[in-house]
Each structure stands twice: as structure tokens, then as C-alpha cells.
């Protein structure tokens, strides 16, 4: 059985690397597709509450986010440890919501505007006072479709 005889010479042929670009491109495409772009840097800590009756937010372009939570460590010196509102990349107050909604609505296409949804991403431990204030501001801004962001509850 000569077929399995070991070769005597030690110099190995170089591995063909012609397909390496393909693999790299594949990985690139994969990561490009599967990663969701982080739109804002979170300045507040949010641990989403759990719920079962969830509806998916389909079109990202129709959704405006409002983040509520305790500021992260590095901002606690400036903004304290009380829950704060974050709009886009900045801390805001309830008074800023109306203009923020108006601005977001302005940026949308005309026929998309009635479908605009606001998503409140709030920490589970936020007191309701701040949420109610936001809701009142949203009512005034005529942004009536509201989504309380939540995670799927795991049945035990």
C-alpha cells in the first residue's frame, strides 16, 4: 500500500490564500447585516420590565424613543441619582418633549406622520410620576400612539 507512505521531504507547499478575501468578505457581510446600529449612547441605566402581551415595533423609522432611567455612573455627579429623561443624546426635561416630538415629526415623510409611534424605554424601577408627566406631554404633542418597551416574560 504505497499510497499511504509518508513523504520524506519536509518542505510543505504554501497554503493557497486566494479564497481568504472571500472569507473575509463573508464575515464582513455577516456582521454588517446582523448588527443593529446603536443610534444613541445611553446615558441612563435601563433594565426593561417584563410583559407577555408584546407587539413588535416593525418600522424603525416611525418610532421615536424616549429613555427614562437613573443616569449612569459618570453622569451621576452632574445629574444626580434621580431618574432622568434622555432624548437622543442629551438629558432633557419634560418640557423638552413637545418640541422634540414636533422636530421628529417634521423629519418624517408626510404620509408617515400619522403612523408615528413613541416608545418609552424606561427602567422598571422608575416612579410613575415621571412617566405620567411624559404621557401628558405626549398627549399635548398629539403623539398618541405609545409603546411601553418591555421584554418577553419567561414563563416559569
Amino acid at each position: 500500500m504505497a499510497r499511504f507512505r509518508k513523504k520524506k521531504s519536509g518542505n510543505q507547499p504554501a497554503i493557497n490564500t486566494a479564497s481568504l478575501p472571500d472569507i473575509v468578505f463573508m464575515l464582513l457581510f455577516f456582521f454588517m447585516v446582523s448588527t443593529t446600529m446603536k443610534e444613541v449612547t445611553m446615558k441612563v441605566n435601563i433594565q426593561a420590565p417584563e410583559a407577555t402581551e408584546l407587539a413588535k415595533l416593525e418600522k424603525k423609522s416611525l418610532v421615536t424613543y424616549i429613555y427614562v432611567g437613573v443616569p449612569t455612573k459618570q453622569y451621576q455627579k452632574m445629574y444626580g441619582t434621580e431618574p432622568r429623561i434622555q432624548l437622543n443624546d442629551v438629558f432633557a426635561t419634560v418640557g423638552d418633549i413637545q418640541s422634540y416630538i414636533a422636530q421628529e415629526r417634521e423629519a418624517m415623510k408626510e404620509n408617515d406622520r400619522p403612523k408615528m409611534t413613541t416608545s418609552i424605554k424606561a427602567d422598571y424601577d422608575t416612579p410613575m410620576g415621571i412617566i405620567t408627566d411624559i404621557k401628558q406631554a405626549l398627549r399635548k404633542a398629539q403623539a398618541l400612539k405609545l409603546n411601553y418597551s418591555a421584554r418577553q416574560k419567561v414563563e416559569r
Binding site: F29, F30, A51, L57, Q142, L146, A150
Partner: peptide, 24 residues
């Protein structure tokens, strides 16, 4: 492989409770 991953990965979508606020 690329197509396999393209088909099988689901992008995590945001979900939550939908409600309708009353008009002012």
C-alpha cells in the same frame, strides 16, 4: 455560508405594550 447566515439570523426587534393615549 453567507446566504445561510443571512436567512437564519433575525435582527432583534424592539417590542413592547402598545397603547393609545386619549387626545388632549
Amino acid at each position: 455560508l453567507l446566504i445561510f447566515f443571512l436567512v437564519t439570523t433575525t435582527m432583534d426587534t424592539d417590542s413592547g405594550l402598545m397603547t393609545q393615549l386619549p387626545p388632549p
